[in-house]
């Protein structure tokens, strides 16, 4: 059974990041959202494995939740 790889896995991380930013260059928020959605679907299909995808969803959800807790718009609950 494969698991979500959360260790560094890209030969040139900086290069990928730059390309991701470049892809969004000059796009409006709406256009960027549309691009992201397509990217997610394309990558998800490439991964395929339901278990890995679930772990990825969970990792992303947890990270987003944490972020919301620390710097969420409504601020932290007292």
């Amino acid at each position: 059974m494969s698991r979500l790889n959360t260790k560094p896995n890209m030969a040139d991380a900086d290069e990928f990041y730059a390309r991701l930013m470049a892809a969004h260059d000059g796009l409006t928020k709406t256009q960027s959202d549309a691009l992201n959605a397509r990217l997610i679907l394309i990558l998800a299909n490439h991964v395929g494995d339901a278990k890995v995808l679930n772990e990825a969803l969970e990792a992303a959800t947890n990270s987003a939740r944490q972020q919301a807790g620390i710097s969420g718009k409504e601020g932290r609950k007292p």
Partner: peptide
Amino acid sequence: RLFRDAVLDLAVDHEFARPL
């Protein structure tokens, strides 16, 4: 709606999106 439209758009050229 965003993801739905992305699926419909991708499905034209990419077989993988059609079952979605």
